[in-house]
Write a protein that binds this DNA or RNA. Structure first.
Lengths: 351, 351
DNA sequence: AAAAATTATGCAATCGATTGCATTGTGCCA
DNA sequence: TGGCACAATGCAATCGATTGCATAATTTTT
């Protein structure tokens, strides 16, 4: 069982050398078509399977990519991974997954591990704790292609795949205003993380486009608990009580919703809510929560594609590219004053 | 930047041989404590990082595990992965993830890829399509340790980590009966997959323990659509309309709930429902759905632990072990006639 | 027909760590 | 003091594929 066949075995059988066999299998131009055919046939016949480890040792890098994410068990992330895995498989790469669990140290450790494993490239979405790009730069300086997605450090010269957070927040805020809101609150995340800063800015800019809108910002409030507490706080005085909330996460939106229920504030009659991420539960609960779908699968696929393209590019230096994945606002009950919208009501953001 | 230091470099600096350095670093007993210390210090000083690729080539297998799952983007699975990744990291292993996307061919392809990548072991939860264990046996015969989890082929001599599906279904069914149900329906999955067969049997056996319970089984009905259609069908005649449903998945339960709403059947007054998997949405929607929590994180951790233990065991043959992860029934509104239970009402299954 | 160019293949080193066997050195015992 | 055990280290092969350079075989050029 499993006595591995090597190129040497094939060479011996065909009265050739390992070099020739290797070249034949790699479709080297200097090998005659006839021997190529011969070698391929023999290889097939004896069930030859190349040993990528040996090749990796020799050439430096193999066909494995690494991906570092804060946590795997979140709907958004797992969809990104699913997309990336698909692309990897199609192009003959394997994918190693690491969790940083929102800690910089873990992130660095994961980076080290991947570098040592001689992966050909790394995709990363940084942890909530990460407020420097030093450790990423180190990897780049090792010559390992890096691609950032979702949560990124924009100062680094890498490919980036992000959502149109600014546009989406802008659009969602406009949506709330058009539904009649005059006092908005934004539940944001730490503003040193790009996505939260962008959402916040979109929120602010949309408000600036309209007269007489009161607003405030609470941050960070991206968890259910924080959202609930923050909302509860706001509901205490007439002054601070908003009629519209743009939450930077669906869990935060959910928390706000629970607080509203407790405070006897009805949604959407007295308060409209929009969340971020389009978690599965948003359309299942009642009232269903309007949310911004970030097209995670596409993001993962794109990240992997760009990374592999970079790796396989013959040119040494590739101009860093910034890909923006357009998100979609799903308008649901929580942000509709007039009527319950029909199913499948995704609205593309502004182009 | 990154001129890699090798054991040879260290050897040269210390006037030793690579062999000695290697042994020193691996804490070989025949190396004097003094040189060990010397080598370690030098290695640290010059920032030596071992090249696992070279070691893998030489020794045959390295510190990487593979995991094959039907799909990554499901709450249960992503939690299993999260657990496994944690264990792997703690023990110095990397984890390669593959999706079979519920297709046997993909599963085989993934298996081949992992074997060729010289992973030291593989964890797998088989696809819904898989109804043979031949391809898994092939891997085992290659000498690669295999661990199955959740959806397994019980005829194979491997470690298995599964839930107590039978017990859980039995317990949940008993729960429904104790709540006053007299006409139960089970929405099952394909019965050639262990977990569904077990759940079904638990359902049947619980019913057999009680007098005068009417019942029927619909399968497969594990998707939301199927669940909804099946339930709708049942609700058409007084005869077939149940007062309790045990669904083999939460999505199926959700479908049933939607059908009930349409049919004007109220939950939990006229119909009780229990689902499987404890998806996040089950506790968020209204009425909240009672569901069986399968402790995915623990399952993943256990799978990885057992696999690594097997790999690192000095003995060639390890007796296959069957670990049963006890699940918990979360009783929520959808299966409670009397009152809305308080938060945090997890009830352990029968031991 | 000899020189040059082209084509196809072989030789041998290399990637970095591991490991069985050989060798050297030290201490112990009779 | 010779012989022996044992401890510590070195030697060299090995894992399997890749690749620059050399070489042999064939064709083209002048």
């Amino acid at each position: 069982m499993g006595k591995k066949v090597t190129i040497h075995d094939i060479a011996r059988m065909l009265n050739l050398t390992a070099s020739t066999v290797s070249r034949a299998l790699n479709n080297h131009p200097k090998i005659s078509e006839s021997t190529k055919e011969l070698v391929r046939k023999k290889a097939e016949e004896v069930g030859y399977k190349p040993n990528p480890i040996a090749a990796t040792l020799r050439t430096g890098r193999g066909k494995t990519l690494g991906m570092i994410v804060p946590r795997i068990n979140r709907d958004f992330i797992s969809n990104v991974i699913a997309g990336a895995e698909q692309e990897c498989r199609q192009r003959g790469y394997s994918l190693i997954i690491c969790q940083s669990e929102e800690e910089v140290e873990r992130e660095q450790e994961a980076l080290r591990t991947l570098v040592q494993s001689r992966v050909s490239g790394i995709m990363i979405s940084i942890s909530a704790q990460t407020n420097t790009g030093k450790h990423l730069e180190a990897v780049i300086n090792e010559g390992i292609p890096l691609v950032q997605f979702d949560r990124i450090r924009p100062e680094l010269a890498t490919h980036c795949i992000v959502n149109d957070n600014y546009q989406a927040a802008y659009y969602a805020t406009t949506h709330l205003i058009s539904q009649g809101c005059t006092h908005l609150v934004h539940f944001g995340g730490p503003s040193y993380i790009n996505i939260y800063a962008e959402r916040r800015q979109g929120f602010l800019d949309a408000i600036a486009q309209h007269e007489g809108i009161k607003y405030s910002i609470t941050e960070p409030a991206i968890t259910r608990e924080k959202g609930e507490a923050a909302a509860w706080q706001l509901f205490q005085t007439k002054e601070s009580c908003p009629d519209g909330i743009l939450a930077a996460s669906d869990y935060s939106a959910l928390g706000a919703m629970l607080a509203a229920k407790k405070a006897g504030i009805s949604i959407p009659q007295q308060l409209l809510i929009v969340g971020f991420a389009n978690e599965p539960f948003t359309e299942l609960i009642s009232p269903s929560i309007s949310s911004i779908d970030q097209c995670a699968h596409e993001m993962g696929k794109t990240a992997a594609r760009l990374l592999i393209d970079t790796i396989e590019s013959p040119r040494k230096f590739v101009e860093p590219e910034k890909v923006i994945i357009k998100s979609k606002l799903h308008v649901r009950e929580s942000s509709t004053r007039q009527h319950v919208p029909s199913e499948n009501n995704a609205v593309p953001g502004p182009s």
